[in-house]
Design a protein around this nucleic acid. Structure first.
Lengths: 339, 339
DNA sequence: TCCGTTCACTAGACCGGTTTATCATTGCCG
DNA sequence: CGGCAATGATAAACCGGTCTAGTGAACGGA
């Protein structure tokens, strides 16, 4: 038989469509007795709402959108996304909210997707990641007037809510730790320079270097890939006055860098200390295991989802949720300098 | 201003709603001149279709559903999912199909989600992963009459299409390789026994053991976590007549197992050879690097997506796409036995 | 007793498209 | 020139819900 509609329920229960709608949505306007009867009939004929019909009336889509503008191939490699995604989705699941996911080439395409999803009412909100320095998405999201959460602030994101960790404090703690161990030549293999978090970390390193008078502190930009992480390491270790410590912006690059060091005969940690700005099994399973700035990325995703749901509940209120600052976990890849 | 509708276009172009609909959908019923005029107006006022309204009329949702019934936390750790997901999505993106994603607790909840997504017309098709031995989802999907693709067959999945790799042949190649190196005591740290691919691999090992007369070949089941992988390894290495080679069903477990071996003072590869049934940077970056059965999981995802689209185009035809058999990549973690 | 309120419920418009039935023109053919 | 088909366009129904205005009855207070 055809899919049952509320009209069928109304017919069987002997009431009007409106009454059925009220009853099914737990709104006032029907007596408890009638409500119970309607629910029973709905159950009997196995009725389910037609989301499209609901959406036409302006109701929720019960989905949140996430667009990732990075090469698809790199995503499977980078543990960060997968963990963030599972955290996000785990929390959304508890409210039966699905994640509408799409991977695109660039920010322009991403914006196009936002426009169409919003105008087609496919999603109730958007999660933005990889905030850039002058990010064009912010204006678009504000103009579209859709609830949104930026993962990774704080920065210029106007009235849009955000969830962020204190990258600066984390970087400072890593640099100070290395300085205490006697390191003065500290390098930083960072991510894409257009990302705000990359900039914050690089700036924190510069500031710390000035304060602690570390002469050769510098950041080398990469695209986050293990290949470029390895290349940057090779360049650093081949040059004169090579660093005695390197901080990597991702554990994947740190592991790649470790491989290069071993290959070049540079002993870790005795000749080179390595710190990863991201922690995962990857960092724990290498030998030597990697000292890392650790945070619970899964939990970060959960908090992003919670913020999203708060914004959905009250779209006018901007929330800026600061999560725990990544803590330095010392493992085998760092040690005092030898002088 | 309000979102423009086809009524607005009709007004401006001086035609009826119906004519606009015909023009926008490239159907006959309007002259070329009128069509051009309508398209121009639509462009001018930046009109976009309202998917909900379309769906109400029975049109496509332009989304494919994927439900994962595993603990959310483990997903971020396991590289396989992330790579599969990016392959899937990369291919779907090319047709502007979004992925509707949800993580749930168990198969029962997964089935509930299928029912609601289908009846709410949220998705055009479903991708099923982790096929179980007598998988209840198959019957549900057939009953719902929704296009579906099973990732990882072949097995009992009725008329539902599938994309699969020859696990059996892959396992045989690994065992034969180890046998040629002189190994006779080969263990297998496998995944959950209810999964069809786990069973196929275990059975292949048994068959090979019989044919090659390897006495102590056996499979230990785990839940795919690094913790259980490590525990299984510890158990294997602590016992008397310990294996000289272990095959792990995932690279994560292989890396964990490698850690345990090093910790227990068992030299790899001289005292113990390790083979991973899955390859990723993880396997390449350890020291020693891991011999692995390698396949392009990203590509696997792409092929799954292609199959899905083929099924969407022609739902009556079942497709069973066999992908490349995982090839053994020998690295540093395997060597001949010492006698 | 009468009026104002509240309550339970109904009828019907509405959301933004698609589709069908219908109609007016025009062109062609015998 | 009459008849028929093809073409281009329209009006209105329809999809399955939500939501608002309105109705009738019961109830309470002055």
């Amino acid at each position: 038989m055809q899919r049952p509609t509320i009209a069928d329920i109304a017919l069987r229960a002997g009431v009007s469509k409106g009454a059925v709608s009220f009853a099914l949505n737990g709104r006032p306007g029907v007596s408890e007795a009638t409500r119970a009867r309607i629910l029973r009939v709905a159950e009997e004929i196995n009725w389910r709402p037609h989301s499209a019909a609901r959406a036409l009336g302006g109701a929720r889509a019960d989905a949140v959108g996430l667009v990732i503008a990075r090469p698809a191939r790199t995503l499977g490699v980078e543990p960060f996304f997968a963990r963030l995604l599972s955290g996000l989705q785990a929390e959304f699941s508890s409210q039966s909210i699905a994640l509408h996911l799409m991977i695109v080439e660039d920010t322009q395409a991403e914006i196009e997707i936002y426009r169409s999803w919003v105008s087609e009412r496919r999603v109730d909100g958007l999660v933005l990641i990889d905030l850039k320095v002058r990010d064009p998405r912010i204006a678009v999201v504000e103009q579209l007037e859709i609830p949104a959460v930026v993962v990774g602030g704080p920065g210029r994101h106007g009235r849009v809510s955000s969830v962020w960790a204190d990258d600066r404090a984390a970087m400072l703690s890593a640099v100070e730790y290395l300085a205490v161990l006697g390191h003065t030549r500290i390098a930083h293999v960072s991510g894409l320079p257009e990302f705000q978090h990359t900039q914050r970390r690089s700036r924190a390193l510069r500031d710390a270097a000035t304060r602690l008078t570390l002469p050769r502190a510098r950041s080398l930009h990469t695209d986050f890939s293990d290949a470029q992480g390895a290349a940057a390491t090779r360049k650093l270790l081949a040059g004169a006055g090579r660093p005695t410590a390197i901080i990597y912006d991702s554990d994947l690059m740190a592991v790649a860098g470790l491989g290069v060091a071993l290959e070049m005969g540079v002993a870790v940690p005795h000749e080179l200390s390595i710190v990863s700005f991201d922690d995962s099994v990857l960092a724990q399973l290498t030998h030597p295991s990697l000292t890392a700035l650790s945070r619970d990325t899964y939990r970060f995703g959960v908090q992003a989802a919670q913020t999203m749901m708060a914004v959905l509940a009250n779209p006018t209120k901007t929330k800026n949720h600061k999560t725990e600052t990544p803590r330095l976990i010392t493992r085998e890849s760092t040690s005092p300098t030898r002088n």
